[in-house]
Design a binder for these strands. Structure first.
Length: 260
DNA sequence: ATGCCTAGTTGCACTAGA
């Protein structure tokens, strides 16, 4: 089963590019971030006509996540537990059945956190603690799961073309990377780094200053796999070429192939 | 040192992104 993550930076703006990529890449499941749409405005029938079930967790103007799946989605939950006052739509979960096993898929749009330090950075770190708590729950249940999406975390210097320019940024600050390691060190496998080593692999290129043409990118869209799910990993790739397409998002899709 | 660009709003400039 091919499962992808894609920060589309607005469903209205990607109304052609997203279906075009779906037709080419043929993913079974896609976790979307930054749909920037309320649920009622999401073009559900467009994707249903392509064979996808659609579950959204949107809000007006900003954020918003969704799942597209060619397989039925069961037990859908919206929002990250741990703070009832949090109204930002950044998290959705559902269960997908493979040929032999069930997989819990968690789609996330982790807060950017800039400027740092400050209240937005505090919110990012608190959000990560809630994500860690949720991962601990799923591990304790021994539910096979993956957590994927736009983490807004540059894990290592090799994950940025110009790491020095990110030194004090919320995506690279030590506190954010420490929280990332705390999550991974629960026993999760980072799918891309389980298969590919070395610098030069990015999932985001800023629209500004010719970042794409200069290949000035960062790798911030990730898959974390639970131990059982990691055993199912067959491949993980970044669809880099999507960034060169017509009216692209500033992120590109990342996907895993899982045998379950 | 800052903005560079893109998206969304109900706009006629702003916020937010990363």
């Amino acid at each position: 089963m091919k499962i992808a993550t894609f920060n589309i930076n607005g469903i209205k703006a990607r109304i052609d590019a997203l279906p075009n990529w779906l037709g080419t890449a043929q993913p079974d499941v896609v976790l979307l971030q930054e749909i920037k749409s309320v649920d009622d405005a999401f073009p559900v029938t467009l994707f249903e006509d392509m064979g996808y079930n659609v579950e959204t967790h949107g809000q007006k103007s900003f954020n918003g996540v969704a799942i597209l799946s060619k397989h039925p989605l069961e037990d859908v939950t919206r929002g990250l537990p741990g703070d009832d006052s949090d109204e930002q739509a950044r998290y959705i979960e559902a269960t997908v059945m493979g040929e032999r096993d069930a997989l819990r898929v968690c789609g996330l749009y982790l807060p950017n956190g800039n400027p740092a330090p400050g209240p937005k950075f505090d919110y990012k770190l608190a959000w990560m603690e809630r994500l860690i708590a949720r991962a601990k729950e799923l591990l304790a249940e021994e539910t096979p799961f993956l957590m994927t999406g736009d983490y807004n975390i540059i894990p290592q210097a090799e994950d940025a073309a110009k790491p020095d320019s990110w030194r004090d940024d919320a995506l690279f600050r030590p506190e954010a990377r420490a929280a990332w390691r705390k999550l991974v060190n629960l026993g999760l496998t980072e799918a891309f780094r389980a298969r590919t080593q070395g610098p030069g692999h990015y999932s985001f290129w800023d629209y500004q200053a010719g970042a794409w043409n200069r290949n000035n990118g960062i790798r911030i869209d990730h898959f974390l796999l639970s131990p059982v799910c990691a055993d199912w990993l067959r491949d993980c790739q970044i669809d880099r070429d999507v960034r060169a397409g017509e009216k692209p998002s500033d992120h590109v899709p990342v996907w895993v192939e899982l045998d379950f």
